[in-house]
């Protein structure tokens, strides 16, 4: 649905990374982990298009002025261009236009499996709302978080507060182990697990190959340039596993995803 929202808070977590909370209609309370929103940061034509963000958290809060619980949505974002720079300048009370919830979310899997979350950089964002849902079901959850340096590792304490066991790897070793998060992950993979991953494409490709090698089911959440978020512009497509020029099989990240089973996609 399309709705007007108000910024509740917009906090810088580490250099260039922000966490923003916005008001939302009650219906958003049933959003699934892995779904996303499209946000129009300004009414002007520059930037023109909306920007997509995974749902970092959805919940309710008590306002000072009344007793009924109000719904909020949160996003975690990195300032990378003009749109996100303008977003980072918004304050409590500013209005924005949202489309949400969009896309297909994570399927939570079977009871009793160990749930393995793998996040790279800002790809950690949709995994927090997922972790909350999994923990609420009584599942054992482990998080593997990777980034270039310690500034890229976000909200680890929030995950730990949920009871999630966390593992961190950074390229420069400023936090956790030095190296790729996939190297740490591989040491802990085994039967009876299910993987949920979000991050840059090379990381997702590595995770998906690793999952296949260990026979562990794996869902990935993709990020892509998109104009509309509703399956019309066809800007955000990814080739499906059997895609070829003769038998085209493009999937829309916005509508068919952003969450896919890793075997559905063609990994170059």
């Amino acid at each position: 649905m399309q709705f007007k929202s108000m910024v509740i808070s917009n906090v810088e977590l580490s250099p260039c990374y922000f966490r923003m909370r916005m008001t939302a209609p009650q219906d958003l309370g049933t959003s699934l982990p892995g779904q996303f929103l499209m946000l129009k940061v300004t009414e002007s034509i520059d930037p023109l298009l909306r920007r997509p963000f995974g749902l970092f958290d959805v919940g309710t809060f008590q306002a000072e002025y009344d007793e009924t619980p109000h719904t909020y949505v949160e996003i975690l974002y990195k300032v990378v261009g003009k749109g996100t720079r303008m977003l980072s300048a918004l304050h409590h009370g500013d209005g924005i236009d949202l489309l949400a919830p969009l896309g297909k979310g994570f399927r939570l899997g079977e009871k009793g499996e160990e749930k393995i979350l793998v996040g790279g950089g800002v790809g950690l964002a949709p995994l927090y709302y997922l972790a909350k849902a999994l923990v609420a079901q009584g599942e054992k959850v482990r998080l593997f978080a990777g980034g270039r340096n310690r500034d890229d590792i976000l909200c680890i304490t929030e995950f730990e507060r949920l009871g999630v066991e966390t593992y961190v790897a950074t390229d420069d070793g400023t936090l956790g182990e030095q190296g790729f998060v996939t190297e740490v992950l591989e040491k802990h993979l085994g039967a009876g697990q299910r993987i949920f991953a979000c991050g840059p494409m090379p990381m997702l490709g590595a995770v998906s190959r690793m999952a296949e090698a260990h026979g562990v089911p794996c869902q990935v959440s993709l990020e892509a340039y998109m104009a509309c978020g509703v399956g019309a512009c066809l800007g955000c497509v990814m080739p499906g596993a059997n895609h070829s020029d003769q038998t085209p099989d493009y999937r829309c990240v916005c509508k068919d995803g952003p969450v896919f089973d890793s075997f559905e996609l063609k990994w170059s």
Binding site: Y225, C233, L234, G235, V237
Partner: peptide
């Protein structure tokens, strides 16, 4: 049916956008 072009297929420019969907 037409597959269309490889990605990136769209990019925003000041006051507009470029697309090369490739008639998918």
């Amino acid at each position: 049916p037409k597959a269309g072009n490889p990605t990136p297929r769209i990019v925003e420019t000041p006051g507009g956008m470029l697309n090369a969907i490739g008639l998918q």
